[in-house]
Design a protein around this nucleic acid. Structure first.
Lengths: 95, 95
DNA sequence: ATAAATAGGTTTATAATGTAAACCAATTTA
DNA sequence: TAAATTGGTTTACATTATAAACCTATTTAT
């Protein structure tokens, strides 16, 4: 009954989990905002966003604001589901 | 307020977390029991128990039952505290 | 006009981690 | 006495996380 379900390795990562946690509340967020909130380096964030995008958990849109590059992230429905499952599974470990 | 506190990397690992989760309820458990409950391989479990022991989160006692080796694990007070902090921190990510 | 600093990232190199496979010593069973 | 099982440990490998280095363009200072 209280077996330990496997934890999605893509979400069981501090930075990726923090990003997903933010996105699930905000729906959309900019790279620099995520960087600030998670206290991560740009390099690390860039890598982890790539992984989330390749997994289909987020969509990353590149555009410009004025003349500056602007990277915007949005969680997908698949991402929402994955996050919810992860949280459900995780609870068995910490209750 | 809802900043993301760092997650103790020793606990933010599926297998080690499962082990700690079991030990916090059971107080003491045998290697083979942990192996069965966590569905892990003996090699992986052995390595992860070492890490928890070196961190001071568990105590590992080696003895014999009859003629067979018997490895028993017990959570330490430090381990209990670490687990509780981890859970508190983690909640900020998943609420 | 040009140099230096800043913004907004990406790429790459390295270290740490997780895991399975191989191994070992002893015991039990065929 | 050979084969299988128990109860693990060690080692090798692949994956991951992270920081450092880098890149392109813009803005600011000289």
């Amino acid at each position: 009954m209280s077996a330990f379900s496997p934890l999605d390795p893509l979400l069981h990562s501090q930075l990726r989990l923090a990003v997903m946690s933010l996105l699930i509340g905000l729906d959309e967020a900019e790279f620099t905002f995520l960087k600030g909130q998670t206290q991560s380096t740009a390099g690390n964030l860039s890598v982890q966003l790539d992984k989330l995008e390749k997994a289909g958990y987020i969509e990353v849109t590149k555009s410009f604001r004025g003349k500056r590059p602007l990277t915007t992230c949005k969680i997908t429905q698949e991402g929402v589901s994955a996050f919810e499952s992860y949280v459900e599974n995780l609870k068995k470990y910490i209750e």
